[in-house]
Amino acid sequence: MSRELTQPNFILLNIGQALHNADWNWKNVCSPFIRIHFIESGTAKLIRDNKVYRLHKDHLYLTPAYTNHGYECDGPLSLYYIHIYEELSNHPSIFDLMDFPVEIQADQLTIQLIKRLAEINPERKLQYFDPWSYDNLPTLVRNISLQKSVPFGYEMEAQGIIKQLLSRFLVQASDKKLNIDKRIQQSLHYIRTNLHKPISIDVLAETCFLTKDHFIRLFKKNMGCTPGKYINEKKIEKAQRMMLTQDITIKDLAYSLGFENNSYFNRFFKKMTGENPGSHKKKILLLAKNSDY
């Protein structure tokens, strides 16, 4: 993996210690954030990708965002949970590029880092451990907004600790073997790093040394949609992320994503999400204001 392809930035959502006794049993959990679990004592099971992983003392377990999984626990269990939101900016997710191990052993420094992260973020504890009580848009918006109130020194320290924890998994990770034509992979990288400006299909074809018609056919064969549709979908996805994390007007949002005018951005946003961007932003702000932590 090229180091220039990704510059990950992470927001801490939740961290805390949880004590369970045969009451950590959930199915079909799928969240827009990364989970790390550190097992202090006891045992349980993580079900992921049709595999069962028995959780062991002094080990860390990683579940990427949007990964369907579940838990089974039939006795005493003590663990730390860490929920992390990955801001993608103009880069692909690191999890799109690398295959991470599910389990690694924790050394003493790693354990100290986890406890330090919990110590400086006491307000990030979960009140309830039912995923459906916190794994929703209102709570996600609320937790991301808390980032603005964290002292800058603690925010920087939290960023460093999160990256250190993920680095423990990264050293054992491997490049994904994507079954995508290398020329299309090159065009995907161009799209992801240029979402802030208009993207020409002609330019994409030229970077792949293909004619425009050949490029469109090859892109559709590999990605299941036209390059134009893919580009606009990625721009709207980024717009939604920016609304979550930035105070930005709809006009500035449209221009920052390379749309030539507000009207076109509004039409395409509504086509993809079912609502206009103004209404979507108001809903997010209202949820952030009224949701319970």
Score class of each variant (00 low, 15 high):
54 R>S: 13
66 Y>Q: 01
205 A>R: 00
160 G>D: 09
121 N>Q: 09
83 H>P: 08
51 K>E: 15
154 Y>F: 14
106 A>D: 00
61 Y>T: 04
59 H>V: 06
137 L>D: 02
6 T>R: 11
232 N>S: 15
211 T>F: 10
15 I>F: 08
65 A>T: 02
200 S>F: 06
21 N>E: 12
171 V>M: 10
66 Y>L: 11
58 D>L: 06
260 E>W: 09
167 S>F: 05
149 S>G: 07
219 F>T: 05
243 M>H: 07
241 R>T: 06
226 T>E: 09
289 K>N: 04
60 L>H: 06
165 L>M: 03
282 K>P: 01
28 N>W: 08
184 I>S: 03
262 N>S: 14
77 L>F: 02
245 T>R: 03
125 K>G: 14
292 D>M: 14
10 F>G: 01
229 K>Y: 15
292 D>P: 07
279 S>V: 01
77 L>W: 00
104 I>Q: 10
16 G>W: 02
48 R>K: 13
276 N>M: 08
131 P>A: 03
163 K>A: 11
53 Y>N: 09
238 K>F: 03
52 V>L: 10
108 Q>R: 14
278 G>Q: 08
199 I>V: 10
220 K>P: 07
29 V>L: 03
1 M>A: 14
71 Y>E: 11
167 S>K: 03
262 N>W: 14
161 I>P: 09
203 V>I: 13
20 H>K: 08
48 R>S: 12
36 I>C: 01
122 P>N: 06
191 I>N: 05
244 L>S: 03
56 H>E: 14
164 Q>V: 13
157 E>M: 09
265 F>Q: 08
233 E>Y: 07
262 N>I: 11
214 H>E: 12
